[in-house]
Structure formats: structure tokens, C-alpha cells
Design a protein around this nucleic acid. Structure first.
Length: 582
RNA sequence: GCGCCCGUAGCUCAGUAGGAUAGAGCACAGGAUUCCUAAUCCUGGGGUCGCAGGUUCGAAUCCUGCCGGGCGCACCA
């Protein structure tokens, strides 16, 4: 067990023994233990006394004093001080920190892993872009965010499915098919197709049309729409999904499962959902007011088939069928989420763009209704990427063909830069994005700062091969004894920092906030670079000291532990931990 | 009109289940390399945490109102 955990459990036990917990109902993980910001405040601090005092309506200092005595009895605690309004500052023995190093090295790739997820099934649905064209920069953020959330959840013990919902039904697919057919005709010099405003002008359709021409020649010319529409849409979808998969592969993203909207219609899943809703008495024929401030506001409302989403916290009940008696998109989406529930997931996570925020309540309502309040749906909204070109904002649109593709972007800067960049902001804040700037800035991207720290450590390992130091990171290092001289303040800061890595992972996982990992890695790299450079003035603290081999091996062991944490962190966010720069 | 998100240093942003002196990067000014990689480090200036109230030992963080920006409000997907 790691040190932070040990202390949480220790305090938790004391609280229970004192019956403090009767009113507060805490779990060990709820006890927040932080690295003290100043050495005056010891190594670790907790505000638990103040939290408890509030609930128990007693004085924080009394609670703190009570805890102090008992925490002090523990072997790895040197002493405990009460400060300010009731902070408990814990001073840890240096041996306890040294022990953490062994703990980290023994855990290796598993350092920070946990079983908190309890093998529960989680479905993370992300990207889910319409199969009408290649991915563009607007999709990148959600793609990276979803991927990393999934990685983190897996790391803390959930069984995760990475899923993509393919909207291969509806009007946009018809337009896609017609656009492709138009391109096909053009290849034969025919341009008598009537203009339609939702034409997809991207050049990728010309490529696909050429393929069809090579394969089938003029077979599809001069036929009524009903003869070719399905063939052309199916052809386009399968080709474009291949393009999308390739785009995602450039960012090292691979989904486990692709769910096709069309399968819902084919298997009459929507009717099944309606039946379920009828059984639950959640459907009725009714009238909802038209939206205000819209072109429909003056229309007379008609009776429609409605789902009682208001009962589950939505603002209004939602229609399931259109006037022509076909299903709404929402009806299909309900069926889709019902399918997820059916597949046995304990938790659902959807990653959406901010433009879909208004849709959250109704889908959450649907999941609550269909799972009978058993399954939680967490919708992560990531804000849009505000695009600019040469400093001027511009709007992208697939239909106008005016967009920067993901492909172009990866080509220019590489996957590591993009993945890191997409995570340096929490998802709710909009990112401003200028391709030109992004390319210029990519060489100062903070990802290199973190990778460099990792590479520097490996440069030490290369260096010592030429020196008479017995240290091989591929060998079993658990027997290496640590020198008690491993006590420089920079060293201790580093050891503390890597010791709290498991808590960082848990926080990131519990809130689905990958950017916490990114910020942590930058802080760790900063401590490391800083300590490294101290060595240029103070030769005593350099990692390699030919006079003292035990000390050198201890320091290398510490560096190895640091490299483990950096590499585990980078792996979670899908960035390569480099052993050498360039 | 209604709903959601955002407003913190010149710029881009962390910090928000209330906690100790509000942080980082970029930019700006200066400094460090006979030495384990200078893609690094060190020092410095820079803040009415949008505004105004409230809750309390304590508020950037919670509540209310307002201001400013974004997104959404269709039987479109």
C-alpha cells in the first residue's frame, strides 16, 4: 500500500475508534491528504479536523489534538503539528520516503493502478462523427479526451469498451449518396444533375466515385434514384468509415466497437423501446408548445407521440415520431442507449461537443427511465475549438468543403503534440486554434518538456555503461540498498511527488478529468529539470558520483522510479515516453 | 425569452466536494554551459480572481442578482 493510502486508513481507523464517524460517514478515500506547500508545514497535511468539526459542531482544534496524539504513535511518522485553524501537519521519517522508492520500482508499470473500478463495465462513446467525410480538427478534442478517459478508467480497474456510434441513417446519408452519384456522373462528362443545397463537395467523394467507375463502369447511369441510392450510400459509408478509422489510427486511437444506427431500424429495436416505455407508462399522445423565438413559434402545435422525459428532469416532454410517422432521431438514440443498457454496462460515458449540450437532459432522462434509475450516464461536454486562419476566425463546414482535416494536422505536428495540446485545457474551456500557429508553436510544446525529462534519465543509464557502476535497469533492482545519504531536499521533493502519483490517477479517474495527469506530469518534469540543473552549481548532488557508488546507485534508482511515473503517465495519455530526443 | 458553459497576470490557462502567502507556461528584463543532453535552470516585475451583495472562524471556490462572451432551444442528425 502506498504511503498516502496508509495514512488515510490510519486516520480513518482513528476516526472510527473515536466514534467521530457516526455523523460524518467518511470513507478512507474521502480524507484528503496533500503534499504540504511549505516545509514549515511538514511533509503532508490534512484538513480533516476542520471538516469533521463542522459536522460534529465542535472545535477543529479539539479534533485535531485528538488525532495528533494517535497519528504520532505510528512508526513512519516523526511528529505531528497542529497549525492555523486546525490543519494537521505530518512530518514523515526519511526512511518512509525511501521505502516508497522500492514500492514504486517493484510495482513498475502497475504503479498507480488500482482496483477501485471493481471490474465494472463502462462504455465510453466518443468521436461518433457522421460518416460523411474525413475527420477534421473539430473532432480531435473529443477523440483524445474520450480515449484518455477510457485509458484512465481501465487503469483504475474498470472494464472499458471504447465505442463509436455511426449515424448511417437519415437525410444526411441520402445527401451523401446523391453527392457521390453526382460525382460518378461527372466522371462520364454528365452534369445534368439538379443542384441541391446539401451537396458534399469534398474531393474524397471523387476518389470513391472513380472506384465505382472502375468496378462497375457505366452500369449505374441513367437509372432512377431508387435503383442506386442504397448502393451508393453503402459504398460511401464503408469507404468513409475506413478513412475515419485511418484518421483515428494516426492519433493511435482504436475503438473496440462500432455501433451502426441502421441496425436499430433493421432489428426493430426502436419498436422494442416503445413497447418498454408503454409498459412503464411513459408514453402519451400530447401537445408541446412550439419553441419561442424561432420560425416555428407561430405554428399551431399538433398532437404527437411523446416521452415523459420531464418526469426525469428534462425541461419538456420529447417527441418520438415525426408527422410522417417515422421515428425521430431521439427515438433512435433511446433505442441505442437501451441497447447499451442491455449489453450490461454499469456506467455510460458519452463525449459530445458543446453544440449538443442542450441534448443532455433528454438522453439522461432516457437512460434513467430505461434502466429504471440503475445506470448512470455521464456526458462530458468538450467545448468547441475556435478556429482561425492567419488570425481571422473562420467557420468550418463539411458541406462547404472548407476545413482543416485531422490528417493534415497530424502530418504537420505529429500525434504526441496534438494529444498533449488537447489535454492542456479542461474540456469546458474553448480552445483557440490556428493551424499556422499550431505548427509554429509545436516546437515549444510542453509535451517535449516532459519527454525530455524522461530522456535525460535514460541518458544517465547510457552514461553509466561506460563507468564502473553496477546498475542495470533490466535486472532485478529490488535488492539495491538505498543510501541514507539520499536526503537532499531536491531528492526528497521528487520522491514525495512520485509517491502521490496514485492519488493523482484516482482524482483524474473519479472526475473524468485527464488534464490533471498532464498538469502533474509537467510539475514532476519541472522538479526533475530543476534538480538536475542544481547539479551544475552543486556537484555534490549530481546523480553520478564516482567516489560513492552506493549513493550513485541509490540516485539512479530514484531516477528510475521517476522514469516509471513519467512513462506511466504518458502512456495513459497516449504519448510516447522517449528514451532519447530527436 | 429560456437553458447550459465560460469570465483568474499583457496573452493562453491551472486552481472550484470552502482552507494556510492565488499558481504555471508564453511574452518582457537580467543571469547560469571547462560539468550527467541548455528542448534545461535561476532571478525579477506583473492580480479590484467580471461587478455587487450574502452565508462563516475562513470564499477565486457555495447562494442571489447583475454585466460581458460562447453554445443550444425542429418533427436535423
Amino acid at each position: 500500500m502506498n504511503l498516502i493510502n496508509k495514512i488515510q486508513v490510519l486516520i480513518f481507523d482513528i476516526i472510527n475508534d473515536n466514534d467521530f464517524n457516526k455523523l460524518s460517514n467518511l470513507k478512507p478515500d474521502d480524507i484528503s491528504i496533500e503534499l504540504s506547500k511549505s516545509s514549515k508545514h511538514g511533509d503532508l497535511s490534512t484538513n480533516i479536523a476542520m471538516v469533521l468539526a463542522k459536522k460534529l459542531k465542535t472545535k477543529p482544534k479539539d479534533v485535531a489534538l485528538n488525532l495528533q496524539k494517535q497519528i504520532e504513535k505510528t512508526e513512519y511518522v516523526n511528529h505531528v503539528e497542529i497549525a492555523g485553524p486546525g490543519f494537521i501537519n505530518i512530518f514523515i521519517s526519511i526512511e518512509a520516503w525511501h521505502n516508497q522508492l522500492s514500492e514504486i520500482i517493484n510495482a513498475g508499470e502497475d504503479w498507480g493502478k488500482s482496483k477501485i473500478g471493481n471490474s465494472k463495465l463502462v462504455n465510453v462513446e466518443y468521436v461518433s462523427a457522421n460518416p460523411t467525410g474525413p475527420l477534421h480538427v473539430g473532432h480531435v478534442r473529443g477523440a483524445v479526451l474520450g480515449d484518455v478517459i477510457a485509458n484512465i478508467l481501465e487503469f483504475v480497474g474498470f472494464k472499458v469498451t471504447k465505442e463509436y456510434y455511426v449515424n448511417d441513417a437519415g437525410i444526411q446519408i441520402k445527401n451523401l449518396s446523391k453527392s457521390l452519384y453526382k460525382r460518378y456522373n461527372e466522371l462520364f462528362g454528365i452534369n445534368n444533375q439538379e443542384e441541391f443545397k446539401d451537396f458534399y463537395p469534398g474531393s474524397y467523394l471523387i476518389e470513391i466515385a472513380k472506384e465505382i467507375k472502375n468496378k462497375d463502369n457505366s452500369e449505374w447511369l441513367n437509372l432512377p434514384e431508387s435503383d442506386w441510392i442504397d448502393y451508393f450510400s453503402n459504398y460511401a459509408i464503408s469507404k468513409i468509415m475506413q478513412i475515419i478509422k485511418n484518421d483515428l489510427a494516426l492519433l493511435n486511437i482504436k475503438h473496440d466497437y462500432f455501433f451502426f444506427e441502421s441496425s436499430l431500424h433493421e432489428k426493430f429495436k426502436i419498436d422494442k423501446v416503445l413497447k418498454k416505455l408503454i409498459n412503464l407508462n411513459l408514453i402519451y399522445e400530447g401537445v408541446i408548445p412550439p419553441p419561442k423565438n424561432s420560425k416555428f413559434s407561430n405554428e399551431k402545435p399538433e398532437k404527437q407521440l411523446l416521452f415523459r422525459s420531464e418526469k426525469f428532469g428534462d425541461d419538456i416532454d420529447r417527441p418520438l415520431k415525426k408527422n410522417d410517422n417515422s421515428f425521430t432521431y431521439f427515438a433512435a438514440d433511446m433505442a441505442y442507449h437501451y441497447d447499451k443498457i442491455d449489453r450490461g454496462y454499469n456506467e455510460l460515458i458519452n463525449i459530445w461537443g458543446a453544440d449538443h449540450a442542450g441534448y443532455i437532459k433528454r438522453v439522461k432522462s432516457a437512460v434513467s427511465a430505461l434502466s429504471e434509475n440503475k445506470i448512470n450516464l455521464d456526458v462530458k461536454i468538450c467545448n468547441l475549438i475556435k478556429l482561425s486562419k492567419d488570425g481571422k476566425p473562420f467557420k468550418m463546414s463539411k458541406r462547404s468543403g472548407n476545413f482543416v482535416t485531422l490528417n493534415q494536422l497530424v502530418d504537420e505536428v505529429g500525434p504526441d503534440v496534438i494529444r498533449f495540446m488537447m489535454l492542456t485545457q479542461k474540456p469546458e474551456t474553448p480552445i483557440e486554434f490556428d493551424l499556422k500557429k499550431a505548427v509554429e508553436m509545436s516546437s515549444d510544446n510542453p509535451v517535449f518538456y516532459v519527454q525530455y525529462a524522461h530522456a535525460r534519465i535514460y541518458s544517465l543509464f547510457r552514461k553509466i555503461k561506460d563507468i564502473d557502476i553496477d546498475f542495470d535497469i533490466d535486472a532485478d533492482l529490488s535488492f539495491v540498498k538505498l543510501s541514507s545519504k539520499l536526503n537532499d531536499s531536491g531528492e526528497i521533493s521528487l520522491i514525495k511527488k512520485i509517491s502521490i502519483w496514485p492519488s493523482i490517477v484516482l482524482t483524474a479517474a473519479s472526475k473524468n478529468e485527464p488534464h490533471k495527469i498532464v498538469y502533474y506530469l509537467q510539475e514532476l518534469a519541472n522538479l526533475f529539470h530543476s534538480h538536475w540543473n542544481q547539479g551544475s552549481k552543486n556537484t555534490e548532488i549530481r546523480f553520478i558520483n564516482l567516489e560513492d557508488k552506493l549513493l550513485t546507485r541509490s540516485r539512479l534508482l530514484m531516477c528510475y522510479a521517476i522514469s516509471i511515473v513519467i512513462s506511466n503517465g504518458l502512456r495513459l495519455i497516449g504519448v510516447e515516453p522517449l528514451k532519447e530526443m530527436y
